[in-house]
């Protein structure tokens, strides 16, 4: 088993954290702006305006 000493953990926390942050932000922005998702999002945004009729089944 690898000896998880303090310095290793700190170094990992510092370097990996930054990489993770960037990868995640890019992924989320790309997903949100992907053209084929547009229609779905618009329908979702409108869906709450008229939803009091009752459950679908």
């Amino acid at each position: 088993m690898i000896d998880l000493d303090h310095d290793i953990l700190v170094a990992f926390a510092k370097s990996f954290g930054l990489f993770y942050l960037m990868a995640l932000s890019i992924g989320v922005v790309v997903y949100a702006c992907w053209p084929s998702n547009k229609k779905r999002f618009e329908r979702a945004a409108r869906s709450v305006l008229d939803d009091e009729e009752g459950p679908w089944r």
């Binding site: 989320v28 702006c33 305006l49």
Partner: peptide, 20 residues
């Protein structure tokens, strides 16, 4: 949105801010 009777301005932005 319900009360204003208008859909949310940007649904995309709401997703981005969620993960943020």
């Amino acid at each position: 949105p319900k009360r204003a009777e208008r859909p949310i301005f940007s649904y995309r932005l709401s997703i981005i801010s969620f993960w943020g």
